[in-house]
Write a protein that binds this DNA or RNA. Sequence first.
DNA 1: AAGTGGTCTAGACCACTTC
DNA 2: AAGTGGTCTAGACCACTTT
Lengths: 230, 230
Amino acid sequence: MAQALYQRIAESLKQRILTGGHPAGDVMPSENELADAYRTSRVTVRKAFQILESEGLIMARQGKGYIVQPPQHAVYTMVFGEAAEPFRFLEITIVNPDLEVSRALGLRDGQVVVVLRRLLERNGKPVAYDEKFVPYVRGTPTVELEMRYAEFPDMFAAHYTPASLRTEMEIRATTPPKRALLALGEENGRFLTVIRRILTADDTCIGFGREYLTNDYGPLRAGSGFDAKK
Amino acid sequence: MAQALYQRIAESLKQRILTGGHPAGDVMPSENELADAYRTSRVTVRKAFQILESEGLIMARQGKGYIVQPPQHAVYTMVFGEAAEPFRFLEITIVNPDLEVSRALGLRDGQVVVVLRRLLERNGKPVAYDEKFVPYVRGTPTVELEMRYAEFPDMFAAHYTPASLRTEMEIRATTPPKRALLALGEENGRFLTVIRRILTADDTCIGFGREYLTNDYGPLRAGSGFDAKK
DNA sequence: AAGTGGTCTAGACCACTTC
DNA sequence: AAGTGGTCTAGACCACTTT
């Protein structure tokens, strides 16, 4: 058996949709109908339908059938790893947070943070300046050590249940602080792409990151459409 | 039955993982084991496992079992719709494409394009300037009409099989053309976030879009972690 | 009432991994 | 050989939609 029956059925149904045999809004043939046609059980046909449903091609409606969906182009998938990029370590110190950091981490007045600063170079040219902030807690210098080498979420793997961690990011163009421009060798007043990362564990913010990207970094990419999940 | 059994099992297994009961690398209890424990059939337990697998929490290995996966934070999901934003129509004309447009659409020298320009305003202030380009083909003025109102992928729904369409996008900071800055009321030399959209049908580029976002537009957001799929 | 998808059972055989 | 997940069958009852 080169390919499972349910996969072959899914492929066949997908082709019918992709080639316009079933335009959006159409109701697909029923499970029983296809089970007869393919001389198989309903469960197998059902499994095929569920593949198409997970890909967003169809939507199940109890009592009606599987309805062909119009293409979805508003949801993008973006791959943006940190680990693939070896960063050059710059410094790790304790500082007074600026307003943005303080607000993101939900700090009280006067509370200090540990900051890790790194630089990403490509072909000898700096292309990204990265800052990561975590609240400073007396007596837990472990975090500082881990920050130096680990990826953002990994830093907390020992302290939190890894799977409860969640990262959100925001992208926009801003003028980076002088410190970042200097490190990146960019002119003053220059606008760069900034990615802000908020790391939460059980809906509590435990880390905040800022990454400034020069144009040499290249664009951020994202994909959409039915194949985005692949 | 408030919730299906397979959902309750999935929820229970998920909790065990999220609370650290099964750290990454662990093998989950087998299907048969759980089927006995829950006094149900293997199929039902299997369905629960497949939910967790689709969420990236576990990975199935034939002959071994379901292995708990470490969290994945490099894949982000971003929702960035056009339709939700009512754009103000500016113009639709035929122009000579600049190099970027020409290259993206794979045009021959001298080939002209149809361009649609729109403005997104929020609270009376322009926050985004949008340009969409499609190759100009004599005798098909339909596209021009459709461009005016439709979303990018929808424009081609009549000409291509909708589901074969795919959108890719690139994000970076650039200096927009004077035309865009003027429309947005921004100073010259200002850097904005630009989103380039490439629309392909069967791996052929059929449309190219550029959207310049001011800081008033707000940041682009993306999420990662196990809940990203929800 | 008839047809649809949603859930579930109690088996079966297969391919793969481990011992 | 024993245990695991991968596939599949032939039923069953339920909730929902349409006629």
